[in-house]
Design a binder for these strands. Structure first.
Lengths: 344, 344
DNA sequence: CTGTTAGCGCCTTCAG
DNA sequence: CTGAAGGCGCTAACAG
């Protein structure tokens, strides 16, 4: 034993611990990190010293030295969106299990924001990236993170062939489920309110809609296709436009929960009774879906799982960069009343 | 000019840039950071070199040297919760404006998780902390981050007198608004479904409820007070219990959106017609509140603002640690139909 | 205005 | 098993 705990002038560094324990810095380092064998005394002394001095190793210095930060960058358009928030939680959990931390960046729906976020993350030397892109080009991406070779797993919105992998939602299957269900209810004049075509999900859902309609031998009027941002307001406006048509649809599939909510709002403004006057189904099953009026028939999936799977893929990639892998998250139909079902 | 861009063996370091530009490392550093004046040539040469070599300064090394990370730690029980997600977004935006980045940690509703999160953040030498605690003790907090003196602003749930400041929601005012409104509708037998008493909001809302009832000269039956976690399931169970009473309440105030949703679900399960059979009002105005059946009368506030204000307080504290400041976010009543109003 | 020197805190050869 | 030495990449003194 030596002097009293440091008067907190600065806080304890490895050297302090070593001095206090009466050993060299390297020995202290080894003891603390469990490398090699020691005489019990030595080890105990170091541990005690660390305890007493409240030693908190500097992740900064360690990372600089080891060239590993155990930090992963997470970039999404908007953390406040339920989907991204859930994905973040899932990823966070999975990463934590593997000892990684998350540095979060909002890209704010803009490519410039995405590039900035990526640069920041790269300068922080993150070990990996989890990215839900909103439209960065492969070239820009390559230029920003490619050179350093930081592993990157895309999710939700993928960048063709780039990065160490991707996790997608089974958009085509989901839309199929929705359209099939509407057709079973006898609808033939179905409209779609789609999300941004700059994103994978926006494009895939719209394409799948056309394909599904075609499969049923149904035609889709051009004015029955509305696309825009993923916002409630967009869904609302689109619904009004749809209903103002000389031949309004008898059913609509909304590409997201926000869009479906907008449709609901517009219908309510017009005093429409759903599903009698208009049937509605949506992609995304919000947790309050059963409590809406009418309760919303939707295609659901596990958003946390999207993040968790992406994170696991990334961890693998960071450990041993193997071949690129792409996974798909399954979706299921949750029939409720907005489609015309009698159910719950 | 010198040789061709580096074959990307490793990536460019400041030394590389300096060499390429034919100047010393310190000059390169100064030029890049805009310190001091230079002969135009020098500056241009350095900038060009940095450009060509795609130089990305290491935030790690810089932080180690300057003892500043420009990173803020953000700790919440659950990022996926709408409130925290929104607060995060608000904080993120405000912080970004001041050049700070966010490192996110989920405490998972447990004190142990909170301590771990704090330790991690401290070892990363974050410049500041934004914390929505779930019950860490002042002692534990002091022990974990106090020694280093990292500024910390609490939000939502405060730790009495600790840290550099706090941002609270005006819970008392919100509950007053709710109770007053119910009383105006003629209710005298009002129950409350409260959230966790380990958190400031849980306690304050419950206390305010008792105070408000008292103010109106109304008594509250002990069995009309139910508390638990902030979960829909809890709200549902509590509502069933309330309705099974020999003297069920005629109205209930739910302490959060989740709780209100649970109450709605339970009411629906029993085939009750709201607000005729039971009036309901809630703290927290979810964005889909108008689309529920019946639409939910609630007290709302700007969740993003909570995060943004906390972040601004923190930035001030990091710049010049002045006196502790505590701010309150205002709330407003949004009357809809679940209370008995005819409105929208 | 510019270069040289030193060191942030840690880990990891290389000797002993 | 342990200690000494060096360096990760950058910036802040200190000279010139």
């Amino acid at each position: 034993m030596n002097s009293a705990p440091r008067p907190s002038g600065r806080d304890a560094t490895l050297a302090d611990v070593a001095e206090y324990a009466g050993v060299s810095a390297s020995t202290a380092s080894r003891a603390l990190n469990g490398r090699g064998e020691f005489t019990p005394e030595t080890r105990a002394a170091v541990l005690a010293a660390a305890e007493v001095l409240n030693f908190q190793p500097s992740a900064l210095a360690r990372s600089l030295r080891t060239r590993t930060t155990y930090t992963v960058g997470f970039v999404v358009p908007d953390v406040a969106s339920p989907f991204y928030a859930a994905a973040l939680k899932g990823a966070q959990g999975a990463l934590e299990e593997s000892g990684y931390r998350v540095m979060l960046m909002n890209s704010g729906q803009e490519v410039s924001g995405e590039v900035t976020a990526l640069q920041t993350l790269v300068s922080h030397r993150v070990d990996g990236l989890l990215l839900a892109t909103t439209g960065i080009s492969a070239g820009r991406f390559e230029e920003t993170v490619g050179r350093r070779g930081t592993p990157c797993v895309f999710f939700d919105s993928l960048l063709a062939g780039a990065g160490a992998g991707g996790v997608r939602i089974d958009n085509a299957r989901g839309i199929d489920l929705l359209v099939d269900h509407l057709v079973e209810h006898g609808h033939r004049s179905i409209a779609i309110i789609g999300g941004s075509l700059d994103e994978t999900s926006g494009r895939e859902r719209l394409d799948a809609f056309h394909a599904a309609m075609h499969r049923h031998g149904l035609s889709v009027a051009p004015e029955h296709v509305r696309v825009g941002r993923w916002a409630q307001e967009v869904g609302r406006a689109a619904t009004h436009e749809l209903l103002d048509l000389v031949e309004p649809p008898t059913a609509v599939v909304a590409s997201s929960a926000e869009l479906a909510l907008g449709c609901l709002a517009a219908s309510r403004e017009r005093g429409l009774r759903l599903p009698a006057d208009l049937a509605l189904v949506g992609f995304d099953d919000p947790y309050f879906g059963a409590l809406l009026e009418p309760s919303l028939t939707a295609v659901g999936y596990d958003a946390e799982e999207v993040g968790a799977v992406a994170a696991r893929l990334l961890v693998e990639a960071m450990r041993n960069s193997e071949a690129r892998r792409e996974l798909s998250i399954p979706v299921t139909l949750v029939p409720r009343r907005s489609c015309g079902c009698e159910a719950p």
